[in-house]
Computed example of a mutant assay.
Amino acid sequence: MAKVCIFDAYGTLFDVAAAARAAADEPGREALQAVWPELAEHWRLKQLQYTWLRTITDDYTPFWEVTKDGLDWAMEKVGLTDDPELRERLLALYWELAPYREVPIMLAQLKAAGKTCAILSNGSKDMLEGAVDSAGIGVFLDAVLSVEDVDIFKPSSEVYDMVGNEFGCAKEDVLFVSSNGWDIAGASGYGFETVWVNRAGDPVDRLPHQPKHVLSDLSTIPELA
């Protein structure tokens, strides 16, 4: 049984499409309403691609800068570059991303069972603090670990090292949960027991290391831990 449950943040605990969806629901956002799903998808993809490229080229910059760069690309892609107010609104909403519906109950169950729970994220510390506070889940977390402390993004092993350094636990004591297949591959290769949260029903990535468990949401995590 796992002693430490580690969660990725964006796309795993927090809905990364929530910012674009919420902005599109606001009055006067007709242009965004027509393209917000496409914008959200492009924004997330570029955000991830830029972390990988910056890791490969040894050119780390905080995740907040990557997030802004990804949004700028996405807005140009969908033809919304002439709306600086919308850009600022989307960035502000990213600090308040809604958690997936099952997250608070799932974390409460883990804590009631005596598990150590933490986030391990590419996110900048202040971004993560904003999201955790907005979601009201800080009471369930023993730590929020950011790659800012090592200046490199996942799936570098230096990031996964942070778990053992923080909690003094062995790799086999960790249940690592992420919605990102590449993150799961990295964590599996590192030696963690992994859970891929596959909300979209996607195929498993063709990478050397596979998830041990595949779930459609987080609700049954306490049964695995």
Rank of each mutant, 00 (worst) to 15 (best):
G114M: 08
G136M: 13
H213G: 00
Y94S: 13
E166D: 01
L145G: 07
A112Y: 00
P37L: 11
A131N: 15
E223H: 09
C117M: 08
A74P: 11
D8W: 03
T116W: 00
N198T: 06
G181S: 13
Y50I: 08
E88M: 08
Y94T: 14
A113S: 11
L145W: 06
Y94P: 01
G114H: 00
A92I: 02
V195N: 06
E88V: 00
D69T: 12
I105G: 09
D126E: 14
S156W: 03
V4N: 00
L39I: 12
L110C: 00
D133G: 14
K125P: 10
A143F: 01
A98P: 06
M75E: 08
L175H: 02
W73G: 06
S134P: 09
E76L: 08
P211L: 07
T81S: 15
A20N: 13
I221A: 02
F7G: 05
S219Y: 00
H42F: 13
E102K: 00
G114Y: 01
A23Y: 09
V132L: 12
E96H: 15
E96P: 12
G189Y: 11
G114R: 04
P222A: 01
V214W: 09
S178V: 05
A170P: 02
K154P: 05
F7D: 04
Y100M: 06
L145E: 10
L128R: 08
A131I: 15
A118M: 05
A131G: 08
A135I: 04
D149M: 10
A98D: 15
D133S: 14
D59S: 14
E102V: 02
D161I: 03
L91V: 12
L91I: 12
T194G: 04
L32R: 07
A113H: 03
I56V: 15
G168R: 01
S146H: 05
A9W: 10
A187M: 05
L215I: 07
E41P: 13
V144P: 09
D126T: 10
G164F: 01
V35H: 05
A200C: 07
K171Q: 10
D59P: 04
D58K: 15
W73F: 15
I6L: 07
G79W: 04
L218E: 03
L86T: 10
W36F: 14
T57Q: 09
A98W: 07
D142C: 07
V197C: 07
V159I: 12
W196Q: 05
Y100Q: 02
E38A: 12
F140C: 03
V150Y: 07
A113K: 13
E166N: 03
Y10V: 12
E38L: 13
F140N: 04
F7Y: 09
L107A: 02
A19T: 12
G123A: 11
G28P: 03
F192D: 05
G186V: 03
A22E: 15
L218W: 00
E96D: 10
G181T: 05
E30W: 04
Y60R: 08
T67I: 13
L207A: 04
L215P: 06
Y10F: 14
D72N: 12
L224H: 05
E41F: 13
